[in-house]
Design a protein around this nucleic acid. Structure first.
Lengths: 207, 207, 207, 207
DNA sequence: AATGAATGAGAGTTCATTCAT
DNA sequence: CATGAATGAACTCTCATTCAT
């Protein structure tokens, strides 16, 4: 994200520029997360970031483009993280666990952005909406592919969809309740959620 | 306001009044559901209901009160439905199934209102927020009480909360994806979701 | 224009409404005339009319609609005036004089509106532009029809267009220079302009 | 600034400078002509010319100075052209024809600039406005001096002004309608307009 | 000579809400 | 009961312009 500061950069101005864009996105994520996209004003974001109202338009053409950038950035990061984990993991059960771990660790490291991801899924329009919807579909497909590998199961399309979306509901809804003090680390949470989904309540305590 | 349904009503005019209030709430639910609470305007609701902008203020003091009334009405109805079902059901597994059936059947019969319930949980402020939060807690407690009855399990507080909220995530998230043509009836969906949660993916196909 | 006040009006509220709309249009015409359409702000018009900024939007959906209404109203009035005069006038020369008298008398009675008509011909867009362009064409055709009646002339299309548009230039340009103290009454001006156009400079003094 | 063309220029860099200034003026004229002065933005001009927004300020202190330079340059060129033609022409009728030919040929060769000249006459302020008004007056005086030479006429001040301004209206209005395919060359148009003004409609066909 | 970055001021428009009728 | 009319506050966004580099 701000890795640019670590590596020698031939064009210093663009590094500063990118850093500022990141600062704006971060502030926007906080404001969107706190008040909701439609209820947040550009002035709120300007105040939050310390950048002038007009100044932000140098980096983003519109409020919607800010939302789009946040969503696109997050989805890409989550997807990439998932792929890296899956590359190193074999066995359907472990791969499903990898999905939970990736999602929740990313979520908890970027609560505000993920809240925006979960809650403002339909706030984008036109091309912006389409692009993010594509990423979402890609992410969903990654999950269902794991599910299909699970041994000893006869999936039909309907059931696969239902289970996949149920899992999505579980992990996306977290933004409404997760509290680090009560709910433990990302890894603990991921393990328990994965256990719930694979073994069910009836077998939660076993082993 | 909705007490009128329970007690005999001496003034016929107030019956008409309540009917109009219902019409407004119904239109407001549609508009909130379509555009989101903050993005919806009172003019949108006036247009949707065919009632004049000013006229609506006779029935509701503010836009927020409309949202509040929708949420309160729905939560009460869901809660009442759940209680009735639980009164007639014994056995923890059946009672959990009753929870799913109640939630999903109400959801599917009132998609728009439930969408507002799920998506606009944090759009209320002050006293309105508090009242709805109370209902939400009550609903959540009803679920965890069922879970605690489940046989052969040693719950700790943390695990109970986690499982309860995971289930909430599953059923609340439905508003983002449910499609009657693809996802079957409320009862089918409830059965499958309940199976997933109790037996887990690993045992989905058994019996 | 505000004739409504003279005749009994069954719907008093709409009379008041129309009066206010007229007041806004009149103020808008003044501001557009003074500063030009694009340089005029809605706040300027609000100040000029004494109506609140938001209040004006009850009567006109946009700034452009104000410009449109002014232009439409004026063009219709000029056209109607011309038709009335032509109905009572025979002989091509007299009919041409009627054209000048109508145009100039209307112009001088509504300087600001006519300035807007002349100067902001291309400031409208879309459907607004089209409608006004239609009126303009109709007005132009009325002039060329008179010209075609002129005795002893062999018009070709090109020449007719050229002469018609030259006359339009003369009468539309007036908004840049007319000064009642130096340039006399509308009727005087109309007579002299008509003489110039019909007899030419070489014969200006004759009879 | 445009003195450079008259005096030998010792610094080659300033030649490049002037070329760039000309490029800016030309782009500005196009943009002003297309969208109107007030509706045109400096960004539009930057885009049109391919020069950076800030870069243009090296050449012109403000947007208004661009408009001023365009108008000043054009008026000077038209005036100079008129003087050259009049120096070689004797006889009032021929001199009047020279006026039309000069005006129209310059107009058609520089449509965009002339459109700006005609349409944005009042968009300048302060000293800028004054300077251009002086040029305009000078141009008008040149026309009326020709008119006064016309044989067999008894002008009074009023009539002279009226006829002069009528002619101005004719030739300035051209920017609203001239179409090279329909309206012929500058010379044809000039001849016909001059005929209209000198002989009048009644005698248009004679000889 | 040229520009990326930044901004205060102000644009047109919409908002939830009020109130006389 | 119901509404037409009205408004202050706030909205997103664009503007001409500046300045460090």
């Amino acid at each position: 994200m701000d890795e640019a500061a670590h590596t020698p950069d031939p064009t210093p101005s663009s590094a500063a520029t990118d850093a500022k864009a990141q600062r704006i996105l971060s502030g926007a994520a906080k404001v969107f997360s706190d008040k909701g996209y439609h209820n947040a004003s550009m002035r709120d974001i300007a105040r939050e970031t310390g950048i002038s109202l007009a100044g932000m338009y140098y980096y983003f053409a519109s409020k919607e483009e800010m939302l789009f950038s946040i969503q696109q950035f997050c989805f890409r990061a989550v997807l990439e993280g998932l792929r890296e984990r899956l590359d190193q993991t074999s066995g359907a059960h472990d791969r499903l666990r990898a999905f939970f771990h990736n999602h929740l660790s990313f979520f908890i490291a970027n609560v505000r952005e993920m809240r925006v991801l979960s809650h403002e899924g339909e706030s984008l329009t036109g091309e912006h909406h389409r692009e993010v919807a594509d990423l979402k579909r890609e992410y969903f497909r990654a999950l269902t592919e794991i599910l299909e590998e699970m041994p000893g199961l006869q999936w039909n399309e309907s059931e696969l969809r239902r289970v996949g979306l149920s899992i999505f509901g579980m992990v996306n809804w977290i933004y409404t309740w997760y509290d680090p003090r009560r709910d433990g680390t990302a890894d603990e949470l991921a393990d328990r959620m994965c256990a719930l989904v694979t073994r069910g309540i009836d077998n939660l305590d076993s082993v």
